[in-house]
Simulated scan of single mutants.
Amino acid sequence: MISEYWMWATWLTKVILYLSVAFVVGGAFCYFLLRQYLELKESILKYITIGAGLGLISSTLGFFILIGSFANTGITGMVDPTYINILVNTPTGYIYVLRSISFALLLLLMVVKLNRNKGHFSIIESSIFCILLIPIIFSFSQLGHVANLTLLAQILLSIHILVMSLWMGSLYPLWKTSREISGLPLKDRMHVFGRIAAFIVGILIACGASVALLLIKDFNTLINTAYGYGFMVKMFFVISILLLAAFNKWYFTPRLQHPKFAKHLSHAILFEMLLGLSILLTTGYITTVVGIE
């Protein structure tokens, strides 16, 4: 049985992993959305780089925490050579190693990009970025309580993770945008994001609902299990962030030519970020600490 502190350590690394993927995916999206604003480009590149670094740390640490939970001999058990040798030769071990390598190469790409001080991504760089992102996104469907689902369900989950990361990871760059630019340019970019976000939310809900129906097979699971309770808490945060996003789109965005509304939008995005973090914390909790029966 996994000791409690290993379980909480796993939860923490998973939340950091969620954040790292959000930084990378959302940052990349906003990089292209806001590419004409040079004052934002460098900060977004640094944001993506931080995400890649956090991803490498969380993936590597997650591997050794899993080793430690198997050995169950304290911190020193994290580097137990016997269990390391066993784990690296399992499908789970392959996923951890592949994800860590992908993040490491992504981090290298971003560091080189920052050092060269070139704001434009070439086709080759963009292709490498996307290729490295594929195993990272797909790895979520290969570990934990969803690993035994059908291929279709795993694909749906991967798409869900991708669009969720795009949305959540876009919030910080958008918040920074609301503070760096103003007037009609801000209104235009927020309007474009709002149109794309409407499409993203549709995919997010469709994929998320499909996977949820596969995991929660009956109503009793929802109302009589810890996983079900946690899932309902998560849904509360999801509905809240959807309502806030809709309010931002339909109320604040049309009025962004006025400075006071840009300030209000900035505060609303901060609250949206808080709700997003709550969703990630809850998701990590129900998939790691609680689990589904």
Rank of each mutant, 00 (worst) to 15 (best):
I2T: 03
S3Q: 03
E4D: 00
A9C: 05
T13H: 04
V15E: 06
L17P: 00
Y18R: 05
L19F: 02
F23I: 00
F29Y: 15
Y31I: 13
Y31M: 15
Y37T: 02
I48K: 10
T49S: 12
A52L: 10
L66N: 11
G74N: 09
G74C: 10
M78E: 01
T82G: 14
T82N: 14
T92R: 15
G93E: 10
Y96N: 07
L98D: 08
L98R: 08
I101Y: 06
A104P: 01
A104W: 03
L114T: 01
G119S: 06
G119Q: 01
F121P: 02
S122T: 15
S126R: 05
I128S: 02
F129K: 02
C130Y: 12
L132T: 03
L132I: 04
L133P: 04
I137P: 07
S139R: 10
H145L: 15
N148Y: 11
S158N: 09
S165W: 01
M168C: 13
S170A: 15
S170H: 04
L174T: 10
T177C: 11
T177A: 12
R189F: 13
H191F: 15
G194M: 13
A197R: 06
A198V: 04
L215V: 09
D218G: 05
N220V: 02
L222G: 10
N224D: 02
G230S: 14
K234C: 01
K234Q: 03
F252G: 00
T253W: 05
R255I: 00
F261R: 00
H264S: 00
H264K: 01
H264D: 00
H264C: 00
S266I: 04
S266H: 08
A268K: 00
F271K: 05
S278W: 03
G291W: 15
I292P: 02
